[in-house]
Amino acid sequence: MASVTSSDRMPAAALALGRAELELKHSAGSHSGSVAALRALVWLGAGTEEGAEGELEYAAVADARRGFQDMLPQALQTNGGRLDHSSSSVIKAALLFEALAPAAIQPSQGPEAAASDASGGLSPGMAAAAAIFNAAVESVNPSTRRMSVYHEELQAFFARLITFPVRVAYLTTEGHNGSSSNDHGLRVSPWAAKNAVRRVLQDFPGSAEVLSIWVQLHSRMHHLSALRATITDIAAGRTSGGAELAGGAPLLWALLLRVESRRPGGRHRVHGALENCLASSSSLRSCPVLWRIYLAHHLAAGQLDHAHRVFLRAIHECPSSKALWLDGFAGLRRHLNPRETGELLEICRDKEVFLRTDIFEMLLAEMDSDAG
Rank of each mutant, 00 (worst) to 15 (best):
L38W: 12
G178N: 08
E49G: 03
S282I: 10
R238N: 14
H223R: 15
E260C: 01
R263D: 05
L217R: 05
S225G: 11
A13S: 08
E55Q: 15
A99P: 04
H26P: 06
Q216C: 05
Y170T: 01
I162V: 15
F360Q: 11
A20R: 12
H298E: 13
S281P: 06
A301W: 04
S189V: 09
G110A: 14
I234Q: 00
R160I: 02
A273W: 14
A62M: 03
V289S: 08
T341I: 01
I105G: 02
E275G: 06
C287H: 01
A307C: 05
I91R: 09
P264I: 08
F204A: 00
M126A: 05
V188Q: 10
L211S: 10
L76P: 05
R146K: 14
A60I: 02
Q77H: 06
T230C: 13
S139L: 04
R313Q: 11
R9V: 02
E340R: 00
A37D: 13
C348R: 07
R262K: 09
A75E: 14
K322H: 04
S6T: 07
S180A: 13
H223S: 15
V210M: 10
Q303N: 09
S119N: 05
S143K: 09
N195G: 00
V188N: 07
R263M: 08
L312K: 15
A36G: 11
A2Y: 01
F97K: 04
Q216E: 12
F164N: 12
L299W: 05
G33T: 09
R269P: 02
S88K: 05
R19C: 09
F164W: 07
S139E: 11
A156T: 08
G241Q: 04
I162N: 10
A16D: 03
V137P: 08
L171G: 02
H151V: 11
V310T: 11
D63E: 14
R334M: 04
M126F: 15
M367K: 13
E55C: 05
L186E: 02
I347E: 10
